[in-house]
Design a protein around this nucleic acid. Structure first.
Lengths: 335, 335
DNA sequence: GATCTTCTTAAAAACGTTTTAACGACGGTG
DNA sequence: CACCGTCGTTAAAACGTTTTTAAGAAGATC
């Protein structure tokens, strides 16, 4: 209602609006005495800057857009937490969009971001909306790809090497003596799932095994615990248990674990099991789950730092495609 | 960069800027022919409305602020998903703030919301920042309390009855024959923890038990799986196992489960166990976890609907304090 | 054919800030 | 003593919308 404007602050402090603006944005430019006077006036009147007016005139806002595929997945939640942390530290607000893997929803999120004239966008692309992203850049909105390596050099991206991750997992399984391995995954159209498979095959090749003989793929439509359990039931029904199971994420692995134990299969004695992501619940499960850890929180932090650097130093900024390396975490399920 | 303004759309369509604005905001006020002409121009030029300019002039933005206590907790994640859903449906953007239970951080979030001139704020209060919330309302920003019943009638709130929830859990434990029950909780300064305790005591009283005899409180400083496991280890070290354990949330319960099983305690045969929240992982754990389900997703949806109703129909809007009822979910851990 | 309605569009002011160019005062230098 | 930077401040224009008021055109009525 009673919104205090910069003008009222100015009259109370006995200066011009321009000076108040300077106090707000370039405090070093204004004399000590007047500055404190203005700051007092601001406090007394409870003035808070009108972000819209500010960004209208300045040409850019202090907000970033974040579009994730599934806010319910602990992986993305961790990323989001990292993003929020950095943004908040630097005085930026985060506008959250959840695409649910839906291309249209993602497009709508991008439109909202464009309307809000966000300073930049962090996105884990779901659909093939790359063209839309270029449109954003033409509008002067920087874009950083999260958990998706950029194909081109004029773009920043932060990702984790999923091929390495797949190799780590399968090499480890081989080292425990596995001869037949099942790869339980989501749709192979998902880049992460496909890359982890490639890594798995490389590890087999490096060990002199024939992937066709050693590895069996079980692709589920969803990547949650329910699907994992269904995969387990299917395996058991068919009566051909592998020595080891590699799941494309921890939710699948937790479901698999439950399915196996319920059928009386001992983990890891009968079947070794490894997941991916190392979500918190991986270590909390009864047979604690081996997994491939990704620096999720850092992913979010670094992506945001990259983005804000690109915004604040557009000239000196060098685009980077950062690729983190995943890390093997051995727990009880693969002893 | 090349931001298309309403003016350019106007010239291309051969109308005035005002007419374009009408097409955008009151399409029914403008003749069919000109409207389609303007819409074409908008499409051809790739015009997107400048949100800042719009809210500056209109006096309000199409954004809501959401401040949660811990974005890493699946409970809040579910709430956030519900919020995002409704907001997105109605063309609102969600600005996300994570208070991490820190009072100062929460205050900073509210400041950011105020600067962005959000239309309204959804908040699960962490600190005692109720005064700050009143300041927001004076500024014309509506506030809806989430998972926290409003003390006053001039405020909307959405919560779940934690007293009932505590009763449900403990009544159920009693029905399985428990004589001595442990309540593993976070700090009792947290309203939810305290209310669930009250409910537990009521259930005991209703069953004619003496709370002092039957119930032992174990308060941990954090409410995660690690704390739950520590609580289990402490109980085992002291050598006095209760018949049943009621944990104030599922993270604690999962840790407790792991701690008990590792020590060779059988669940539910030796000790029954029930958690709270019914997060996805509750059903996925090896001994699936009984829990008290809260309508988390709905909590977020309803809170947002309430908020947007208050914004859009300020006159006809009636403040509501909605209290949902929790629901007992019985699984293997309390058979 | 003139006047009056009704419907549609145009023109201009306003929202609250940032920014640029200009200005005055003050010391220091020639 | 005149001149010239420097520093601190101000006045005014601009950002892209929305909204209000006024004007114009088309059609209807007498």
């Amino acid at each position: 209602m009673s919104s205090v404007s910069i003008k009222e602050v100015a009259t109370r402090a006995g200066v011009s609006p321009g000076t108040v603006s300077n106090v707000l944005n370039r405090p070093e430019k204004v004399a000590e005495a007047t500055r404190t006077r203005v700051e007092e006036a601001i406090r007394d009147l409870g003035f808070v800057r009108h972000g819209s007016a500010s960004s209208l005139r300045a040409g850019h806002s202090r907000t970033v857009g974040l579009s994730v595929i599934d806010i319910g997945n602990p992986f993305f939640t961790d990323v989001a937490a990292g993003v929020e942390e950095v943004a908040s530290e630097r005085g930026y607000a985060v506008i959250l969009g959840n695409s649910s893997g839906d291309r249209l929803k993602e497009e709508r999120n991008l439109l909202v971001f464009a309307e809000q004239r966000v300073r930049g966008v962090l996105i884990t692309p779901a659909g093939a909306n790359l063209a839309k992203l270029d449109q954003l850049k033409e509008r002067g909105i920087s874009v950083v790809l999260v958990d998706h390596p950029a194909e081109r050099a004029d773009q920043c991206s932060v990702a984790v090497n999923d091929i390495t991750g797949g190799s780590l997992a399968v090499s480890h399984l081989l080292s425990t003596g596995a001869e037949r391995i099942a790869y339980v995954t989501g749709p192979l159209t998902i880049r992460q799932c496909a890359d982890r498979l490639i890594g798995a095959e490389r590890a087999l090749a490096a060990a002199g095994r024939d992937p066709g003989e050693t590895l069996e793929e079980i692709a589920m439509s969803a990547m949650n615990a329910r699907s994992g359990q269904q995969a387990a039931e299917k395996m058991i029904a068919e009566g051909r248990l592998p020595d080891a199971v590699f799941c494309a994420n921890d939710l699948l692995a937790l479901g698999m674990l439950r399915g196996l134990l319920q059928a009386g299969v001992r983990v890891p004695r009968d079947v070794s099991l490894i997941g991916y992501d190392d979500i918190d619940f991986a270590s909390a499960s009864t047979v604690s789950l081996s997994s491939v850890r990704q620096p999720t929180h850092r992913l979010g932090r670094v992506a945001t730092e990259l983005l804000l650097d690109e915004c604040d130093n557009p000239e000196s900024h060098a685009h980077q495609q950062i690729m983190f390396q995943p890390e093997l975490v051995v727990r009880e399920s693969t002893l």
